[in-house]
Write a protein that binds this DNA or RNA. Structure first.
Length: 116
DNA sequence: ATACTGACTAATC
DNA sequence: TGATTAGCCAGTA
């Protein structure tokens, strides 16, 4: 299974009202060093139909390029789900960061890890 | 095949 | 604490 297919699965597992980091997605795809590819894929829509607006960088900042049509679209979508976004485009990872359960992590590993 | 680029990160300074 | 630098790796030229 290719990396982008994995990304699709992982990204769609992010719950509403939560955000995940690029590195976290990469890690869950069993590709810990592919954070940049996550960004690239979302930018070009290579991962299919995924909630790209729930992906932020390691500091909780919205990278901004998520603007499909409007620059603030990412912020709007997040706030609709109850995620507070500061005016400089930053979310509180402690409060809104996605913390996958052990069983979720195990499930991803079962899907991706065993084919390495 | 080589070089440059990028929605990234972690380590240094 | 805030700014720089140095790895990272797939995609593109």
């Amino acid at each position: 299974m290719d990396f982008y297919k994995r990304m699709n699965i992982v990204c769609r597992a992010i719950p509403e009202g939560k955000v995940a980091t690029y590195g976290q997605i990469a890690m869950l795809c069993q590709r810990p060093r592919n954070a940049r590819q996550v960004g690239f894929a979302l930018n070009r829509g290579l991962a299919g139909d995924v909630p790209a607006y729930r992906i932020v960088n390691s500091q909780g900042f919205l990278s901004g390029a998520a603007s499909f049509e409007h620059p603030a679209l990412q912020c709007i979508l997040l706030e609709q789900e109850g995620v507070k976004v500061s005016e400089d485009g930053c979310v509180d990872l402690e409060g809104y960061g996605w913390k996958p359960s052990i069983s979720e992590i195990y499930e991803f590993r079962r899907q991706f890890g065993e084919e390495e």
